[in-house]
Nucleic acid binder design. Sequence first.
RNA 1: CGGGGUGUAGCGCAGCCUGGUAGCGCACAUGGUUUGGGACCAUGCUGUCGGAGGUUCAAAUCCUCUCACCCCGACCA
Length: 582
Amino acid sequence: MKWSETYIPTLREEPTEAEIISHKLLVRAGYIRKLAAGVYNYLPLMQKVLLKITQIVREEMDRAGAQEILMPVLHPAELWLATKRWETVGKELMKMKDRHLRDLVLGGTHEEVVTHLIRGELRSYRQLPLNLYQIQTKFRDEIRPRFGLMRSREFIMKDAYTFDADENGLKTSYQKMVDAYFRIFERCGLETKKVESDTGAMGGKAAHEFMVMVETDGGENVIFACDNCDYAANIEKAISIEPSERESKEAEKPLQKVSTPNMKTVEEVTGFLNVPARKLVKTLLYKADGEVIAALIRGDRQINETKLKNSLKVIELEMADAVTVQRITEAQVGYAGPVGLKGVKLIGDKEVLNLTNFVTGANEDGFHLTDVNIDRDFKLDAVADIRSATLDELCPKCEKGRLKTAKGIEVGNTFMLGTKYSEALNATFVDEHGQEKFFIMGSYGVGITRTAQAAVEKFHDEGGIIWPVPIAPYLAEIVPVNFQDEKQRETALEIYHKMQDKNLEVLLDDRNERAGVKFNDADLIGIPLRITIGEKSLKEGKVEVKVRGSQATVSLRKDEVLEGFLKILSEIESTGKESTKT
RNA sequence: CGGGGUGUAGCGCAGCCUGGUAGCGCACAUGGUUUGGGACCAUGCUGUCGGAGGUUCAAAUCCUCUCACCCCGACCA
């Protein structure tokens, strides 16, 4: 393709709409343009990248025995009502009405539709397992779309669904998908880490996320990984086990009420009373499916709402508003405590059990209690792991290593769903004993658009994008320094046509721009190899090949360009593969 | 949803406080000189000042409403 015949609107200046580097680069390099908040146009270069990724995904899905289908984007509300996800997915579900005012959903995932599809027609265990997938635009009404394609309201996803006769079948199907996912991302030039995750509104038994680890701001997810074993989980899931260092069991002291005027935060109270934050217990009031509950957690810890939600088995969980807090505690926000709190279920974090003589709010403006003790002063209704894991805490799996944190971009996820959807939609088959049984399902997603941006977040420099070879929009860009010069133009066209004849994807910068503009644009759009044709080397019958992201250039005789080019290409492809394995 | 901010040419911005001819840079067009890392000269084109209403002789500017977009928050009592 000639630059003059395609559409690559590069920008000299950084776009103001973008915050993270990959978003800035995709806009600047002419890959994407925004239409509305979280809604993007994919320009020619982007479309090429997306097609490369979908092709890899397709090949690996097919290899894993999945069948490609295409389901509707538009779903009737009834299906979503049947599985209760009309409520549980809640506001993230993109809803609309047709002219008859019937409710419709723009699909963000297709468990309901695929289950409805096979219901009644997939009847025998002999037809199992079955794996159906599609690659399609999805919709999610994100609370706050941001970071370009990372969190958008409309995006492209590959979603696959497996149907099995029993749990062992699901395990096998699941493992096949996991293996396929590692292959997909490796082929895209991306090393991924598989981490345990919460199942959330998706439901089911177990779930994993595939993360591209990055050190930039684009890494939205915090993950914990053991430095000794293979345990890895995201922050919502990472399990905290019993604290290794138990608090010394000092003798219980008598309860005291102390004046703490205008001290509301943990820092203010602990600073004033001169006690460490770990000796204070925060009392956090929540509305859990409409009922007010209190969560107790150490002052130096973060509550984990996902864990709290799961331990309470509720769908909606939100912090109680100030009015509710005042009604329950009869005090301003900042003075809540478990002692004497009435009509509210108390959930304590496991760690709180180890505390003696701690500080809490007094449920009275300007007062806290010191030397509070569980059982003597109040009783807990439940104890659970409801805090977020912290750096260096003991690994819950091997109990030897320490948990380290890292940032990742979630590019894929896998869910062992079980029978949640088949039961809700009454999808059954007949097993070998003639028994009606619910399908055991699994669901598997790959964010195609997000994978593309993750690659940019991972591979770039000051000059622009550095695409991994397998997903680059073009393999090579030919840059004649001066396209007006007849010799340069002829050489450029000759090489261009030779490469096209060999089906090598090549971009020829035929614009009448100065060399600097063309070099900068070449760096920006990130094509792996640049073939430079200039006056000096052309006098010796040579052209230069430069690898994007490295300073080295190789001079090649122009009649050897093709062979030399292919050699360099195979070299960088193999180094790329090695680096993804480390 | 709460808080903050921004909407002026394709892009980036100034002008608004203190009402009175709508500007700058880039881009774009034409001609010329140039051509190995974002050239230069000349000429030219480009606007319902986000929208609606109001105040005024007069509104980009002041007031009211509204829409869109961006950032922070929506767990740390």
